Simulated scan of single mutants.
Amino acid sequence: MIDIPNPTPTLLYSSTRDGGDFGTMMDKVGDASGLLFLVNHNDTHRFGSFVGGQLKSPADGKYKVPLFFISISGAYGQVTKVPIPEARQWVGVAGHDASIRFSTASRGKMTIALGYLWVALGSPGPADDVRSMYQWVEKDDLPAGYLGRLSGNGTLAGTWYFTAKEIAIYQVKSG
């Protein structure tokens, strides 16, 4: 799905090993690119996102980068690539002591695909833990065969707002 010849994954960050602090996550990822985020929401729903570039500093603000989502379990009967329209292929990263506005009452530390995934989201926010998340996908962007919850839009997690059991971030390079 990633279109990298002979892909070799290297674990950079694991919330189980490294804790849920945003600064720690950013330090562990560093300037690596080709990032595969794997999110274990619960026992039935697992998903990921592949970000083709780096997690850039907040000085760069929101920036364009190739990306897509992957439903691993729960939302589809099999592992399914969820392509993201080019117009939504943006990532936003806040500084260690900053946040990104989600709504008038909520803030987060990072957003992928113009809000399809929020990391460290809280109200009033941001949350102290990167596992505090919000995930959704517009109905029209979901591939055929979606089995998950639909309320105008869908989610690859079991619910829209959730605390993940675990997050892992791998760098995927050509081996």
Rank of each mutant, 00 (worst) to 15 (best):
D128V: 07
A32P: 01
K56Y: 12
Y134H: 08
A94C: 03
G152V: 01
S106E: 11
G53Y: 11
K165S: 08
P126I: 08
R101V: 06
F22K: 05
Y134W: 06
P124R: 05
V79Y: 07
S71K: 07
K28M: 14
A87K: 13
R46N: 14
I112Q: 01
G20Y: 04
G115I: 01
Y134E: 04
G92A: 15
W118E: 09
I2L: 15
D18E: 04
W160M: 08
D140M: 09
G34A: 03
I4S: 03
K64P: 03
G48A: 06
S14P: 10
N153I: 07
L142W: 04
G52A: 13
M110L: 13
V51N: 00
T104K: 12
D31N: 11
G48W: 03
A94F: 01
F68S: 02
A105V: 12
L156E: 05
G77A: 11
L55Y: 06
P58D: 13
M110I: 03
A105E: 11
S123D: 15
R107E: 09
D21C: 14
W90F: 15
L150W: 04
S106Y: 10
F22H: 06
L156Y: 02
T80R: 12
P7D: 05
A105T: 14
T24A: 08
E138R: 11
D43L: 14
I167H: 01
K165Q: 12
D18G: 07
N42K: 02
L35S: 03
L35H: 01
Q54D: 11
A157E: 02
M133A: 05
S15N: 13
K64S: 09
K139M: 07
S174A: 14
G34S: 02
A98S: 10
R88N: 14
V130F: 00
R107S: 13
D3H: 12
D129L: 10
H96V: 11
M25N: 00
G34W: 07
A164M: 02
T104P: 10
L114D: 15
L12E: 05
Q54L: 09
Y134I: 05
A32C: 04
L117E: 12
W118N: 09
V51E: 00
A127M: 05
S14F: 10
T24S: 06
G125V: 05
G48I: 01
R131V: 01
D21V: 15
G108E: 05
Y13Q: 05
F50I: 00
N40L: 10
G125T: 04
T8G: 13
I84H: 04
P143G: 10
P85C: 12
H41A: 14
P83S: 05
V172Y: 10
H41R: 09
I72M: 09
Y170F: 14
